[in-house]
Amino acid sequence: MKELIRPSTKGPSAGAVTDRFVFTAASAVDPATMRRVPEAESLHDEVRVCLRRIEKTLAEAGLTLKDLTKVTCWVSEEKYRLEFAYAYRDLLAPGPYPSRALFVIGLPGDCRVQIDAIAARRKPA
């Protein structure tokens, strides 16, 4: 059983909620232009935009970034790997940090970062 968050007939919905998990993902792309939004100037900014978008989606399911369980992250070039890791660490500080994998892969437009996220809903009482 699932419910979509911000269901859309044009483009993807923002996420999906099941009894136990919320599934979402974010990049800093502007779907209208297929380019990064202006506020994603530096890589650190871009990670912030991604996490804020995830945070907004999670909030609609009553969760926060502290509920993240697992993320798969991609950067567009190897040179961004450590910069991403440090930005991500700082933006999620003091944690908890979810289980994470980080890869280099081709991304849409001029995006340098994309994050796929799974968050767990609270343990049943």
Partner: peptide
Amino acid sequence: HGSPGTTFLVAPTADRERMGKLGLG
């Protein structure tokens, strides 16, 4: 350690300091 809905399992041999520096959970 954990978040409200998740328990994170870290092996006793893991380099926790380094994991923290890299934001790994």
